[in-house]
C-alpha cells in the first residue's frame, strides 16, 4: 500500500507538520526518519517538504537561532506615528535595516497613535537605543512621535501550532527567548 503523496493530501501534510514543527530529527538521514513515520518513501518525504516551501506554507527551513541565548538579551518594540501618505515609502526602508527583525504596519486606535512597529534586538540597552535613533533618522519629519517598549519579562511563548494539538503536548514552557510579538 502506498500513501498518496500529492501535496494536496491534507492528512499527509498535517502529519508531516506534526512531525516536524518542533524541528527536524538531527539524525544521519532525516528524510528516511520522516518517511518511515509517514509510510512514504524517502524521496516522497523530501519532495513534500520542498513542495510545501514552494507553495509558501513553509516560510523557511532553517537553523533558527535563539537570540536570547546568543547574548541578544535586550529587545525593544519601537513604535512610530508615521504620516500615512509616506508609509509605503518608509515602511520598507525601516524593514530593510539589518538590526530590525520584524516590521509591520498596524492600525491606529483611540489612545494609540502609532502605526509602524519595528522590533530591534541587541546585547545591551545602548545597542537598542542606537537602533531606535537610526530609525528616527530614517523617518525624519514623517514621524510625529515614537516610543520604545522594552520587554521586561516573557510570560508565555509557545511556538505557533498549526494543527489540532498533537497527542503529546509539545507546547514548550515559556522560555527565555528573544522573540518579538510576531504574527
Amino acid at each position: 500500500m502506498s500513501a498518496c503523496t500529492c501535496p494536496s493530501d491534507p492528512d499527509l501534510t498535517h502529519r508531516l507538520i506534526d512531525l516536524t514543527q518542533a524541528g527536524l530529527p538531527l539524525v544521519d538521514d532525516p528524510w528516511a526518519w520522516i518517511a518511515e513515520r509517514l509510510g512514504i518513501s524517502r524521496e516522497q518525504a523530501l519532495q513534500l517538504l520542498q513542495q510545501l516551501q514552494r507553495d509558501g506554507a513553509i516560510r523557511r527551513i532553517a537553523a533558527v537561532p535563539n537570540h536570547y541565548r546568543l547574548g541578544y538579551r535586550h529587545n525593544g518594540m519601537t513604535v512610530w506615528d508615521v504620516e500615512d501618505a509616506r508609509m509605503d515609502q518608509l515602511g520598507p526602508l525601516v524593514g530593510a535595516q539589518p538590526f530590525v527583525s520584524h516590521c509591520y504596519r498596524r492600525p491606529r486606535r483611540d489612545g494609540w497613535r502609532y502605526n509602524l512597529f519595528a522590533m530591534v534586538h541587541g546585547r545591551s540597552a545602548e545597542d537598542i537605543d542606537r537602533d531606535r535613533q537610526r530609525i528616527r533618522q530614517l523617518l525624519g519629519d514623517a514621524c510625529r512621535a515614537d516610543d520604545m517598549l522594552v520587554s521586561s519579562r516573557i510570560l508565555k511563548k509557545t511556538g505557533l501550532r498549526l494543527n489540532r494539538p498533537a497527542p503529546t503536548d509539545r507546547a514548550q514552557a515559556p522560555s527565555q527567548e528573544s522573540s518579538s510579538c510576531s504574527e
Binding site: Q53, P65, R69, L160
Partner: peptide, 30 residues
C-alpha cells in the same frame, strides 16, 4: 550534525526545521 546537536542542546538554536507561514493558520492579531 554534531554541531547542530550541540547548539540545539545548549539552546543556542530554538529549532532546526521548518518555520510555517503564520497567515496560513488563519487570523492573528497583536
Amino acid at each position: 550534525l554534531d554541531c547542530l546537536r550541540r547548539l540545539d542542546e545548549q539552546g543556542a538554536l530554538s529549532r532546526v526545521g521548518p518555520v510555517f507561514e503564520h497567515s496560513r493558520a488563519g487570523a492573528s492579531t497583536l
